[in-house]
Computed example of a mutant assay.
Amino acid sequence: MSIDQHGDAKLEGVSLRSLPKVSLHDHLDGGVRPATILELADEYGIEAPAADAKALDAWFATQSDSGSLVEYLKTFELTTGVMQTEAALTRIAREFVEDLARDGVVYGEMRWAPEQHVAGGLTLQQAVDAIQDGIEEGEDAASSRGHDIRVGQLITAMRHTDRSLEIAKLAVENRGRGAVGFDIAGPEDGFLPARHREAFDYLAANFFPTTVHAGEAAGLDSIRSALIDGRALRLGHGVRLAEDLDVVARDDEEVRVQFGDLARWVRDREIPLELSPSSNLQTGAIAAWGTDMVDHPFDLLYQLGFAVTVNVDNRTMSRTSLTRELKLLADAFEYTLDDIEAFQLNAAAGAFLAVEEREELIEIIAEGFEK
């Protein structure tokens, strides 16, 4: 498929980019424009691995396609390096929202870790305020071009550090001022959500919603801890939940599966899975099933009734967009527009919004697809 990161694609004669979309798993430091990285790197005296935006774009793709989450995460040293001032954070957040709008997103949740952006002397709150300024500027810019978009912050703690309670309190303090949820990210294997139980207890006591990275670089124990210790309302990736499914028979008409208790709980409770197809291939998250998009257990999970959603994870590292991810899935599994709409409705239902706002978002999606 020739579609690039910012291109369009058609399905049943309809522009996928023009359809209303919901983006739940979208990292700010994974979506910085290469041209912006180079400008800021030059300004701050940071050495970049490439001299122009096209070459840097290719460098990210090469470095990220390692089959290892640990290696994949190393590319973020460059992006976070240029995100240490208020001006840089505001600019990058504004451009991020503009890129979401360009992708047809009408509601997005931007996840980012404040503790990674204080090396230049910013306080955690100054970083949050700078990001919120950028979000609002981006929303206004999109509105001026006739595209309504709303973006909330998912305040994220790094799972391999010891600041999660501090970050959880920061998130709650900014409820109503841009923060809509909490997450933990970073190296998953060896860092169970249980390590951050105190933070999750605090969030639960304050009725603040959480999504937890789980089931990407680690398996069922990580997912179980996300649900029990993290009280996760959504699973960040969650793709390895398919390890709890035993395919006992498969033919052209039907797949018969025996559910494990964990998989059945997630399916029956309609806990959304924030699946990121291209990223899952790059990091080796689906290595147990294969190395091509058609091997991704996305379709199995969808056919079995899980609340699957489609996400980009990191636009820059994966050179992708939500439009592109949807087209890749449609090509791999022969999905129709009805399927694409179902994925957006799942995401809208799982958004960290009040029920009235989720219902309004569902109407926007239904109307957009009907047109």
Results as ranks from 00 to 15, higher is better:
V257N: 06
A263K: 03
A217M: 07
D338C: 07
A242I: 11
V151R: 00
S68E: 06
D268Y: 02
G134S: 00
P193M: 10
M83T: 08
V22W: 09
G238D: 09
F76I: 05
Y302A: 11
V106A: 01
W289K: 01
N311W: 00
D29T: 11
H296V: 00
D295F: 02
A119C: 06
T323A: 11
G120D: 07
A58L: 15
S321V: 10
E216Q: 08
D221A: 13
F259M: 13
D57H: 11
A179Q: 02
E270Y: 11
L273C: 09
L345D: 03
A88Q: 01
A58R: 15
I37V: 15
G176D: 07
L165D: 11
I46C: 04
I271V: 14
I37M: 05
A307F: 02
H6R: 06
A218W: 15
A35W: 08
E243I: 00
Y44L: 14
A217R: 10
V212H: 08
L262V: 07
S15E: 12
I184H: 03
L328T: 15
I155L: 08
S23R: 11
A87W: 02
S143G: 06
V248Q: 14
T309W: 00
F343V: 10
L227I: 13
E334A: 15
T85C: 01
R319D: 09
L122R: 12
A307P: 06
D299W: 11
A88S: 11
R315V: 10
E356S: 15
L165A: 11
D251L: 03
K169Y: 10
L241T: 04
T36E: 08
D338E: 15
E137S: 00
V180P: 01
V22R: 10
A113M: 08
E367T: 09
E253I: 00
V355S: 15
Q344V: 14
A194S: 14
L322G: 10
I92D: 04
M110P: 12
R91V: 01
G146C: 01
I3H: 00
E359D: 15
G134V: 01
V247Y: 07
R267I: 02
W112A: 02
V257K: 03
R17W: 12
T211Q: 12
N311S: 01
D99C: 00
L301G: 05
K21V: 07
R175N: 07
A51D: 15
E188V: 13
E363I: 13
I149P: 02
D8M: 07
F182A: 04
G81I: 03
P297A: 04
V308K: 02
A113P: 11
K54H: 08
I271G: 00
W289L: 01
M1K: 10
D313M: 00
Q116M: 14
P114W: 13
R175A: 14
W265H: 13
D251R: 04
P114H: 13
T62S: 06
H296Q: 01
A366M: 12
